[in-house]
């Protein structure tokens, strides 16, 4: 994994200091990485493979909300209370990722305002882009009377 590829949005200094506390991990296809309501005490940055985020629907298969692929951050609920996952996550293929312990990263940030700010900006950016994607899908663009259906 090239460190520049992942978390490329972070400035080099903070990125290096963050990567120093990360560790490589992997999940087999089908692994439940976390469950809705579970304690959000870590996050991942995906290197290879795909992860589905899903919502538990009683009596049915979990409803998949979005697929995250390489380079994407998995999990941001660790950052703010109540520190619980609000979605479930499942590896849909062999996933290799960098894993970060929330407590460790937050400790690091306490003494490192530059990293703290850079990481927070990064996570807000991630949340923002997911929100935009969700809103775009709310438009039901490809529906028969959505914007742009030809003929």
């Amino acid at each position: 994994m090239t460190r520049a590829g992942v978390l490329a949005a972070l400035p080099e200094g903070p990125r290096e200091r963050l990567m120093a506390v990360g560790r490589e991990t992997s999940f087999e296809a089908g692994t439940r990485i976390f469950e809705e309501g579970g304690r959000a005490d870590r996050f991942w940055v995906i290197h290879t493979g795909n992860v589905n985020l899903d919502v538990h629907v009683p009596g049915r298969h979990p409803a998949v909300i979005e697929t995250l692929g390489p380079g994407r951050m998995l999990g941001w609920s660790w950052l703010c209370p109540p520190h619980e996952w609000h979605l479930g996550a499942e590896a849909t293929s062999l996933v290799r990722a960098w894993e970060f312990e929330a407590a460790e990263v937050l400790d690091l940030c306490q003494d490192d305002p530059e990293l703290d700010h850079a990481l927070l900006s990064y996570v807000v950016g991630v949340i923002g882009s997911r929100l935009r994607a969700a809103r775009t899908r709310l438009l039901d663009l490809y529906g028969p009377y959505g914007s742009g259906s030809a003929g």
Partner: peptide, 9 residues
């Protein structure tokens, strides 16, 4: 079994 989300992803 495929991906879910916007095409830009």
């Amino acid at each position: 079994r495929g991906r879910v989300g916007v095409v830009t992803a």
